[in-house]
């Protein structure tokens, strides 16, 4: 059974199709990152999964429970950290967390310790006496994350969990999300931040204009780009035409260019090509001074699959 499964899921707002026949699955115990630019349908999908929105057509199930037919049961097993933090303006963070914990039957005996520990982990403890309306954007986002962490739901959903959070805070939140996965939760993270996706994802689903473009692990997505890895080799002597011919003869999807002592190769899988290249160079008597391998970013992956940049360029 999938932790999340949607079948032909569509959502229409007036004349706008936010989701168009989406088929999407998440395995139990994995972190699925949904990558897509603003307006790609990420938030709409999450809102349907957490039962705030009803789909226009199609079905969505969370741990086998239909989100439309049995919304209350779905809400018992899932938790969401919203993109925009939602809290009672005149309550303090600990009071908001206590309310949340009580709504999800967190053991009263462990509740206070859990809240205190989570607030300290997310560096919210110093702000414990501030009312929600006086928290900074980053603090409010951490509180949003804290709600899900103390809840430890079967399905945890994070919508852009580190927007407005500083670099140090981002790392903390990411580590806590991975910890939550290790404790058994299935996790969905929606983001348009490449670093976040790279750090967290077990698998990535790329959404574009309300449809699933591709879903796989990050290495496989990168490998799927022809000439995806770039290998730069510096030789001690100028690169000979014979060596280039030999390397072209190694097979695979490769594109070579050389200038002076340097050879530049675009290959599908550097880990396969580099050992062959070093053997061929050794046989040809060409001494290697250095090798640099760079791989495409998720930006490149997104561009490859959708033809558009993930984040609009200024």
């Amino acid at each position: 059974m999938f932790a999340v499964e949607t079948l032909d899921l569509s959502k229409r707002y007036g004349k706008t199709d936010a989701l168009r026949g989406l088929n999407f699955t998440v395995n139990e115990g994995e972190i699925m990152v949904i990558l897509g630019p603003n307006g790609s349908g990420k938030t709409t999908l999450l809102m349907i999964l957490c039962t705030i929105l009803k789909p226009t057509s199609g079905t969505a199930k969370v741990v086998g429970i239909d989100v439309v037919e049995e919304g209350t049961k779905v809400r018992e097993v899932m938790g969401i950290a919203f993109q925009e933090a939602r809290g009672f303006w005149r309550h303090k963070p600990s009071s908001i967390l206590r309310f949340h914990a009580s709504m999800f039957d967190i053991d009263p005996a462990k509740r206070q310790d859990l809240i205190e520990r989570t607030m300290k982990d997310l560096e919210l403890w110093e702000s414990r006496d501030k009312m929600f309306m006086h928290l900074s954007g980053g603090q409010a986002k951490r509180l949003e994350t804290a709600k899900v962490l103390i809840q430890q739901p079967k399905l945890a959903i994070f919508d852009e969990p580190t927007s407005q959070v500083d670099l140090r805070g981002k790392r903390k939140i990411w580590d806590k999300i991975r910890e939550l996965r290790d404790q058994g939760s299935t996790i969905i993270v929606a983001t348009n931040e490449v670093r976040e996706a790279e750090y967290l994802a077990d698998r990535v689903t790329i959404l574009h204009q309300g449809q699933r473009v591709v879903c796989d692990t990050i290495p496989k997505l990168k490998d799927a780009i022809a000439g995806g890895d770039i290998v730069e080799v510096d030789f001690e002597d100028p690169v000979s035409g014979k060596l280039v011919d030999d390397l072209n003869g190694l097979g695979g999807d490769v594109s070579l260019s050389s200038e002076g002592n340097q050879l530049r190769a675009k290959v599908s899988r550097a880990e396969d090509w580099v050992p062959k290249m070093t053997s061929a160079s050794y046989i040809a008597g060409a001494k290697i001074a250095s090798i640099r391998i760079t791989e495409p970013s998720l930006d490149d992956v997104f561009l490859h699959f959708t033809g558009k940049a993930l984040v609009d360029q200024p």
Partner: peptide, 18 residues
Amino acid sequence: WLALREGVVQYYLTLPIR
């Protein structure tokens, strides 16, 4: 009205209550 404006109502809608 505040809960509608500030989105708290959406938070309420994610809680396990009918």
